[in-house]
Design a protein around this nucleic acid. Structure first.
Lengths: 342, 342
DNA sequence: CTGAAAGCGCTAACAT
DNA sequence: ATGTTAGCGCTTTCAG
């Protein structure tokens, strides 16, 4: 069972370029040239080197190469929430696709929505000399990153802008999207509109709440106030909250949930309801068309791609002030948001 | 706008340990000891070194360290399909959680379900000296990996077993799960059961198809044969296929879809249908409870965790023959699978 | 076209 | 408790 050449379970030491060169009977440098396809290598010599490499099962040591070339890797780090949240996985996928164009690899890490852990991850990534760092931040103060930003490692913030420093940022048009949802409901004749939001301290939630409130204010509608629920953080809590809202008297005639988790909870609460309220959810989701849920949609994958592009430009030497890209939203009517009041 | 010390857009070279040592007025090694918390460093000396490091904005160069320590990184590679598929992202999340326990980082790459690209990624990861390589393979021959496996880099295959080599593997009980679904439908009185499957050359699909067929054969039922549809690879194709099935005469009274994508397509096709057939889908999904879809569920995150654990054990020196872990499935009845025939 | 020597930034081994 | 020397595996001068 033991690998050939291994002593008592020790992994075999991989052959080095020196060994390949020795076997091929050439110098170290010639072997290097041959394997890297550099010019100025005789046809036959190159042949011989490649044969030796194959025979030994040689594989370039990227770590040594990177050290020599300037101690910076081909890795780009992404720190975000858990990938089982489709928003984060869509973002990650978009980033990965874009990076690939430039020969860069994505390294992902989950911050558990915890500021402490996020800092630790930033440290770990910087020590590994990532080329750039993309962050969907949980932490609320990023001043500690300010020094790093100037030291050659570009930072890009996704979904939430940095606090205490300037950096490239890609965000969703939260304010506009929520406003559009609110207007949509108002146009449908709703007045008693419930707002179910996640942690209000998070910037995207803040934006969505503000956009909603603003639209209501403009319409001179105050009847939503008793139905405001914030800091609802998971699916079960959302389900319970919506149930409670429906049990109030008078009950709201419409519900606006400010992210995919909360929408899921609302759908559970509304399941089998005889006369469900209108519902609009922020974030599109997989079966929204089947379920017939009206949403505020946006392109999470494009968000990731944009962020990766910004990072790539910085890696390529782009200087200049921090840029902010805003991803557009659009209301997709699928029925739930068009149910009339009462 | 230029970073302090940078010349025309060049990134500042990060300070090295040598510089820290010089500033602190100690030797290189002492600085190393102090910063790594090794014993035998005077209190005051350590203090001085840390102060110097802070002042310079020093950050350990992990690449150099790794090279010195044996040219193997703290990275574990995952090659899989696109993370926007919730199955892959759940797997990735499970892996990430487990690796974290051991101080390892996950690097993800998308093989685009293409064997060629998969090989290229394997090469890239091995060059980067990943500690282990986890693969949800698309390629059908993995013999080229056989040499590598013995060279100290553990491979773990997820969801699909390797072909042409032996390696640790974690798979779902595809056969048993599909069989259970088939029995469930048979018990409900169904005879004309449609099977909508993905690419039949893929092992998991093969297993699901076989499990289904076996159960039907045991029940002495042959009426499913006209309704067999394989190599249905995306949502739209699935939707069209199910529509076509429903238009046949006599139409099937039940449909079994063999993965989440196909189930989504089926749900779209069945949407608004007056008397929809029974439906069971392989793979659980987010709103299955809301939509009321009966599924063959399994724990994709656990699959990832198990794979990561196997890898970790090999990294820790575990020897021995390749192991295979089978993840259990269970039928979750939610209504769609219990609709009676006709 | 090929080779020798130097060194990337760090840690391990061996002094002191 | 601290310092010196060597060298991980590679690429980059600079010479033949």
């Amino acid at each position: 069972m033991s690998a050939p050449g291994s002593a008592d379970g020790q992994a075999v030491r991989r052959p080095t370029l020196t060994q390949v060169a020795a076997l091929a009977g050439v110098s170290l440098k010639t072997a290097s040239r041959a394997l890297n396809g550099e010019p100025n290598v005789a046809e036959t010599t190159g042949e011989r080197v490649r044969a030796a490499a194959d025979q030994l099962g040689y594989r370039l040591n990227g770590i040594a190469r990177e050290l020599r070339r300037g101690a910076t890797s081909a890795l780009v780090g992404l720190i975000s929430g858990d990938l089982t949240n489709p928003f984060y996985s869509a973002v990650a996928s978009g980033i990965e696709r874009e990076l690939r164009q430039h020969g860069l690899q994505l390294v992902t890490a989950n911050n558990d929505e915890d500021a402490e852990r996020e800092r630790a991850l930033v440290d770990a990534f910087l020590e590994r000399r990532v080329r750039a760092l993309l962050i969907v931040p949980s932490g609320t103060d990023h001043g500690y990153l300010a020094i790093e930003g100037t030291r050659g490692v570009p930072f890009v913030f996704l979904d939430r802008p940095p606090v205490g420093m300037a950096a490239d940022t890609v965000v969703i048009d939260n304010h506009g999207g929520a406003r559009a949802a609110a207007l949509h409901l108002l146009a449908g004749g709703h007045r008693r509109v419930a707002l179910v939001a996640d942690l209000a301290r998070m910037a995207p939630q803040r934006g969505r709440i503000d956009g909603f409130v603003e639209a209501m204010a403009e319409a001179g509608n105050d009847e939503w106030r008793p139905y405001l629920r914030t800091d609802v953080h998971d699916v079960r809590q959302a389900e319970r909250t919506v149930r409670e809202l429906l049990a109030t008297d008078p009950a709201p005639t419409a519900v606006f949930t400010t992210n995919n988790r909360l929408t899921t909870g609302a759908l559970r609460a509304l399941r089998g309801h005889p006369r469900p309220p209108a519902l609009i959810g922020f974030d599109d989701f997989d079966l929204a068309d089947v379920v017939g849920t009206t949403v505020v949609a946006h392109d999470a994958m494009a968000l990731g791609r944009s962020a990766a592009r910004l990072a790539q430009e910085r890696i390529g030497g782009h200087e200049g002030p921090a840029r902010t890209i805003v991803v557009a939203t659009s209301v997709i009517a699928r029925g739930s948001g068009e149910r009339p009041p009462n």
